[in-house]
């Protein structure tokens, strides 16, 4: 079954990379972990997001599109990316999530994916 590992960052908790070198290392570590998951058969898709400052909020109200800036980085936790995995149960999904490098700096929400069938 599928699980979504939603990656949150806490930019102000001081646990993130401090130097450019550390940031580069972190990117490499992420790419390596993707490769590990591919080989173990867990990996479906993973993406990291541009900083929250680039986010735009879209709403449809009364047939009209409304576009606003934000949400903003002032919130303590920001969505940083996601990893969609195949795992046999929540236990296994949590093990996979714990290995995502971001788990050491922010946190990961693990959510099981609905698998709807059209009725």
């Amino acid at each position: 079954m599928k699980f979504l590992c939603v990656v949150y960052e806490e930019p102000n908790n001081g646990l993130g990379p401090q130097t450019e070198k550390e940031a580069d290392d972190l990117v490499n570590e992420h790419l390596d972990y993707d490769e590990t998951l591919r080989q173990s058969g867990h990996w479906l898709i993973a993406q990291a997001l541009q900083p929250v400052e680039t986010a735009t909020t879209v709403r449809m109200r009364n047939g009209k599109i409304s576009i606003t800036d934000g949400p903003f980085a002032e919130t303590k936790e920001v969505l940083g990316g996601f990893v969609l995995i195949e795992a046999k149960d929540m236990e296994e999904a949590v093990q996979v999530a714990a290995g995502i490098p971001s788990a050491r700096m922010g946190f990961i929400h693990v959510r099981r994916v609905y698998e709807f069938e059209k009725k």
């Binding site: 541009q50 900083p51 400052e53 680039t54 986010a55 735009t56 800036d69």
Partner: peptide, 10 residues
């Protein structure tokens, strides 16, 4: 600076 960065990055 932020506005320019957003135009570029987003």
């Amino acid at each position: 600076v932020r506005a320019k960065a957003k135009i570029r990055d987003a």
